[in-house]
Amino acid sequence: MNGSIVEILQIVILIGLAPAFAGWIKVVKCRMQGRTSPGLFRPYRDLAKLFSKDIVLAENASWIFRFTPYLVFGTVIIAGAVVPMLSTNLPLSLTADAIVLVGLFGIARFFTALAGMDIGTAFGGMGSSREMMVASLAEPAMLMAIFTVSLLCGSTSLSGIAGTVSGAGFIAKPSLAFAFFAFVLIALAENGRIPVDNPATHLELTMLHEAMILEYSGRHLALIEWAGMMKLFLFMAIGSALFFPFGIDAADNISGIPQAFVFLVVKLGAAGVVLVLIETGLAKMRLFRLTEFLGSAFLMATLGMLSFFILE
């Protein structure tokens, strides 16, 4: 029973706090670059505005274009039900392990890419093609990182991994460190952040993800944007659950939840600052240099795996 309450609470937190997290990143970034920030709550106001607007749909948009935003939103929420944010004791955590999570993000991307091609513009096709290229290189690296961690913990279930890592106390293992670096690089690529993609531009030479969703408007756009924020939030939560799982409640009681929540907020706040540091310090890469970027993510994960066998 407690498990289901935590489950619902997690999803509510995911839906509710993701825009605030996006706002937090904007605030920190503005501070760091000496600009005035739009405030923590700007994303909420943006979403509200988009929801209230009418939709302008291109003449030849098919049902795929209209279905995609809902699907993307749905997959992120299912992923949110599985990731141990507050507690490892989640009744739905059996639904999906880390590999299934990759698949869930995969199906969202599959449909987004199709939606990009549905309208039949040059931009849409370009965005789809490039996004799929990045994803196809990021996925092996992601899996390698998951492999390393699951070799260490003997499980691919996220709750299981978080439980094992936190139960073992904080032990510095080289394999875990490598896997973490690889994970950071992949998270940047998967969420379309600098240096892989620039979420703030609408310039044909620099955009990947944006190019696919150019034609969206109104509530469709709101859903996609919201899902994007939630995905970023989730990746941070996954990172903290896999590599810094302290504070996540393991027992089946509700009283530990407030404390877990405080930990979550603190960890995410710190993650946001790190993300801003990365994004401010680096420039967007040329498209074909991304192979090197993702190649080094793969190398990191592989080294993690090797050092698991060799050094541990």
Binding site: F110, L114, M117, A135, S136, P140
Partner: peptide, 29 residues
């Protein structure tokens, strides 16, 4: 694990191929 990574690469590339198939054949103009 390297072999598994190759399998993952395959899976990801298949998705690219079939986005292409469906997108080019059925979508757009």
């Amino acid at each position: 694990p390297m072999a598994a990574a190759l399998l993952a690469l395959t899976a990801a590339l298949v998705a690219v191929a079939f986005v292409k198939v469906f997108g080019v054949t059925f979508l757009g103009h």
